[in-house]
Design a protein around this nucleic acid. Structure first.
Length: 743
DNA sequence: TTCCCGGAGG
């Protein structure tokens, strides 16, 4: 009877080899079993199933314990077209004495996998075992893994070993070193390796040109290309792709067209990949026409070609065209869906992004991956859609998806921006790998909820954990200081930025400090700072000063700041609105109307205030005086009831807020009572379960009157109200707000 | 055996 094994592959009938003895295999002749029929059969395998059968057979006859034969098995399981890294690792773990070939195969397989770190670990293990020494086949892959991980110190160490080990002239090793240094954004070192090479092949040139192109030195890349042509090295398709990448980064359409022509003129090997790269270049340079012309001409198209078109349309905000690409493409893989979701999310259309996600869930054409979840979570964060966000969190758990740093960051950001900072902290504490993004998101979350002290202590903990902060982290922690009025702490951190944290303060950091000083009433010091700062003060700096002037009613300084702001950003209606607020506060109505006239003449319009609230997973939006909601009648009835109850506790509306910079169409009677956040609060009181806090998201800053009303409502109705405005969160509870009226 | 196009977070 046939064994399962013979059903798949013909089993050699005669066994010419003696049975190997695992204890005597200190065989001097490494390749003793190289021609063993079972070993020969390995190369003929077509599936992992066949390979497993051979594996079993090899174990049975103990051939597996011959290092060479085992290494062939490793090679097939790790590197063949049907490879499975999991299986390769298991095979490897069974081998008592892996040979160099086995080590190399596994290091190579991991170097292009999702966890390149395993390459490095295996490499270190190999050194520790001390039987085999890295060869010229080891270094390119372990260096590649270091490049992928941007493990700069490790890679530099490898470079040292390469030189000492006598591989300093090997073309492959040196090419991989160029690539490594370029990936680590260390172009000087990459170029040094390149220049010192005695011989270079086309790959050396390509790698160096691509290094320049990707780091934003397109001109250096181009220069190197010309030098390459001068030295009679024939460019190939990969060279062209490097040049196209440079064009795409430089947004240089003319140069891109020239490269396209060069490809056709010089008979560069045409390939789908190259065509896709040209498509991508045209889309990045904004020439949809050129891209379409090429796309229509292309004989072969793959998923990448279609997705490139989709992304191009979506980036140009042509969502209809993007959508129709998605509908037309022969197979919709998840990347295409992600492209559409992300385009919506990034263009401030989170609702549309969620609609696409829901559709994907319904029709199940592709399975959401990590990117999908990250984009969708971002959309939830923008909208404040905590129900859907929480649902995705459950989905992640149910599917057993590992929380990568990307995903962790997105979850923390979503929970924070949806008002549940406790849940964000829970996620933060539940993971054990935290990169700078994860820490920064958590610090930002605490900051926006007014928990400045917690944010600062988290920042210090991050420092203790040896995670190097970046410029955004510092902005977040300074922002936390400013939101909580922690002047001394903020100033101290700012002063330590360069010396302790290695970050040169940029304009945003200066703006934060101006904000910190300004809110604390140190206007003079803030002005001194602006005068003496080494970077040109940008809109954020003047905006911070203007905000401080509003708080302290300093008209003269406010005018100066506003002038600067308008000069930098003529379109900035926010500046006019703030200044006009300040005028209104001090009763200068002439100036208010003058400003309003000016705004009208310039065609500036105040962004309409809009509040949204999620109830039972559905997001409801309200504009000022909105009566389009199906429950509109009930909402207005509730508003009347609210007004009556407010009156009964002696509340008088703050009239100065009515006159505050509202456009004419808003200048109706009860403009103030119809602010979008009030409508949303009334709707929340009607619809949300009494045990649930009312969560409202507003696109602009909350006005003083609405803030007062929300405080009173939280007490009168015994409801927690969470209000997210443009800058931060307000937690209203029992008549108080978490911002301590300081915002 | 090295270089290669599309989708992602604070």
């Amino acid at each position: 009877m046939a064994t399962p094994y013979t059903q798949v592959l013909p089993l050699p009938r005669h066994q010419h080899f003696p049975k190997p003895n695992p204890y005597s295999i200190t065989v001097t002749n490494d390749r003793y079993f190289a021609n063993h029929p079972l070993v020969l059969l390995i190369d003929k395998c077509h599936s992992i199933k066949q390979l497993k059968q051979i594996h079993a057979r090899m174990l049975r006859i103990e051939l597996f314990f011959d290092p060479f034969s085992a290494s062939k098995l490793i090679e097939a399981s790790a590197l063949s077209h049907f490879c499975s890294l999991n299986y390769a690792q298991k095979v490897f773990d069974q081998i008592p004495q892996p040979n160099l070939f086995s080590w190399n195969a596994l290091i190579r397989a991991y170097s292009s996998s999702q966890d390149p770190i395993r390459s490095l670990l295996i490499f270190v293990n190999m050194l520790c075992e001390g039987r085999d020494f890295p060869s010229k086949f080891t270094y390119p892959f372990v260096i590649k893994a270091s490049a992928k991980m941007k493990a700069f110190r490790f890679g530099k160490g490898l470079h040292g070993m390469v030189v000492k080990g006598g591989f300093g002239l090997d073309l492959f090793v040196l090419n991989s070193l160029i690539h490594f240094y370029a990936d680590c954004e260390c172009l000087d070192a990459a170029y040094l390796v390149f220049e010192n090479m005695q011989t270079r092949d086309v790959v050396s040139w390509n790698t160096m040109i691509l290094g320049f192109a990707e780091e934003g030195y397109a001109n250096e890349g181009l220069k190197l290309f010309h030098r390459m042509v001068d030295e009679n090295v024939k460019p190939n398709d990969v060279t062209m792709m490097a040049l196209l990448s440079a064009c795409g980064n430089k947004l240089d359409l003319d140069f891109g067209r020239w490269v396209h022509a060069f490809i056709e003129r010089n008979g560069i090997r045409e390939s789908l990949t190259l065509d896709n790269a040209i498509l991508d270049m045209y889309m990045k340079c904004g020439s949809i026409e050129d891209a379409e012309r090429l796309f229509n001409k292309m004989g072969k198209k793959d998923i990448v070609s279609w997705t490139t078109m989709l992304v191009g349309y979506a980036r140009a905000a042509n969502f209809d065209a993007a959508r129709s690409v998605l509908n037309t493409m022969p197979s919709q893989d998840i990347a295409a869906w992600n492209a559409l979701i992300s385009a919506y999310e990034q263009s401030g259309k989170p609702k549309e992004a969620l609609a696409v996600f829901n559709e994907l869930q319904l029709i199940k054409k592709a399975k959401p991956d990590e990117v999908t979840l990250v984009c969708t979570l971002s959309a939830c964060a923008q909208l404040g859609a905590i129900d859907l966000g929480g649902w995705i969190h459950v989905y992640i758990k149910k599917q057993g998806i590992k929380l990568s740093c990307h995903l962790t960051t997105a979850l923390i950001d979503m929970y924070s921006k949806c008002g549940d900072v406790e849940k964000a902290l829970e996620v933060f504490h539940s993971v054990n790998v935290r990169d700078v993004f994860v820490w920064s998101a958590m610090i930002a979350g605490l900051a926006m909820h007014g928990r400045g002290k917690d944010a600062i202590s988290l920042f210090l903990k991050m420092h203790e954990n040896n995670v190097k902060p970046n410029s955004v982290t510092l902005t977040n922690v300074l922002c936390a200081s400013s939101h909580s009025g922690l002047v001394e702490e903020g100033r101290a951190i700012f002063n330590q930025m360069e010396t302790v944290y290695g970050i040169v303060p940029g304009v945003k950091h200066y703006a934060c400090l101006v904000d910190i000083l300004g809110r604390a009433g140190e206007l003079e010091e803030a002005v001194e700072l602006i005068k003496n700062m080494p970077v040109t003060p940008g809109p954020s700096v003047w905006g911070a000063l203007l905000g401080a002037c509003r708080l302290y009613g300093n008209l003269e300084l406010a005018e100066q700041a506003c002038n600067q702001l308008v000069e930098l950003e003529p379109e900035n209606h926010g500046a006019y609105v703030l200044l006009s607020n300040i005028y209104a506060k001090s009763g200068k109505w002439d100036e208010v109307s003058m400003l309003r006239k000016l705004m009208r003449e310039c065609g500036l319009k105040k962004e309409p205030g809009c509040s949204s609230i999620e109830v039972n997973g559905i997001v409801h939006e309200f504009l000022v005086g909105d009566n389009t909601h199906p429950l509109s009648q009930k909402i207005y009835a509730k508003l009347d009831e609210i007004a009556a109850r407010l009156k009964s506790v002696g509340y008088v509306s703050n009239k100065s807020q009515v006159l505050q910079l509202i456009e004419e169409e808003d200048m109706q009677e009860q403009a103030l009572n119809l602010h979008s956040e009030k409508l949303a609060m009334a709707f929340g009181l009607i619809s949300a379960a009494p045990s649930q806090p009312i969560r409202i998201m507003k696109n602009l800053r909350v006005c003083g009157d609405c803030h007062t009303v929300a405080k009173l409502l939280s007490k009168l109705y015994d409801r927690e109200i969470l209000l997210r405005d443009r800058y931060r969160f307000h937690h209203f509870k029992e008549g108080n707000c978490s911002c301590k009226d300081y915002w």
